[in-house]
Design a protein around this nucleic acid. Structure first.
Length: 204
DNA sequence: GTCCTAACCTATTCAGCGA
DNA sequence: TCGCTGAATAGGTTAGGAC
């Protein structure tokens, strides 16, 4: 969907995923589940994904957005200092219920990490095409690649805040000299050292 | 053009695993 | 036990598409 028609601000292949259009039936099932469990565990999300024939990662995003919307709608009357404080503590506005199990931790092999890091150095903000290509290359779901990039960016930022000089050196080291397998990513959008990437103003 | 909402971001926290 | 790092969250922004 997201075609490359926008003349100036799009860098080759740095696209978002195209918007998912849920059917009425799919939404009915999602909303029903959300009303019972706004924080579904991995098993529930998998089951839902199977049931409505979509990816588990889409379910996850849908729940994230739905919770955000609900918080927003509830906010006006619950906006006292008191209530906002009571909403913290990891159970944001939801009656506490024992959380379902998370997804199992993914363990990346050295060569998988090598591939990911190499791609990260080239472009820390890969679009859907690049992520899918990478995912295929290292044999993990695209959603895991996306999470890996998020975590990597966050930790690099954190590191930079704490030790600005050392992190620059680390970046240099990260520019891995040679790798067993390469990625021929066409993105040249980024050098992570360009801080504009962190200003919140992403240009796609 | 406006509105709704999926996709995506950072910041932070939780939690599994190996040293 | 502790540090590293994958997973999940809140809260925010961007942008596709229906109207």
């Amino acid at each position: 969907m997201a075609e490359d028609t926008s003349s100036h601000k799009m860098v080759a292949t740095n696209h978002r995923r195209s918007r998912t259009k849920f059917t009425e039936d799919q939404l009915k099932i999602l909303i029903n589940t959300f009303n019972q469990k706004p924080y579904p565990g991995y098993a529930t999300k998998q089951k839902l994904a199977l049931e409505i024939n979509t990816e588990e990662s889409r379910i996850q995003i849908w729940f994230q957005n739905r919770r955000a919307r609900q918080r927003f709608q509830k906010r006006p009357e619950a906006d006292t200092l008191e209530s906002s404080q009571s909403q913290r503590q990891d159970q944001p506005g939801v009656e506490f219920q024992s959380r379902e199990a998370r997804r199992c931790r993914t363990t990346y092999s050295t060569s998988q990490l090598h591939t990911l890091i190499k791609a990260f150095v080239k472009n820390p903000y890969p679009g859907i095409d690049s992520r899918e290509e990478l995912a295929k290359e290292i044999g993990v779901p695209e959603s895991r690649v996306q999470i890996w990039f998020q975590n990597r960016r966050s930790r690099l930022l954190l590191q930079r805040k704490r030790e600005p000089v050392a992190s620059l050196e680390q970046e240099e080291q990260d520019k891995i000299p040679e790798g067993p397998q390469g990625i021929e990513d066409t993105q040249n959008d980024s050098n992570f050292s360009n801080d504009s990437h962190f200003s919140g103003a992403r240009t796609w």
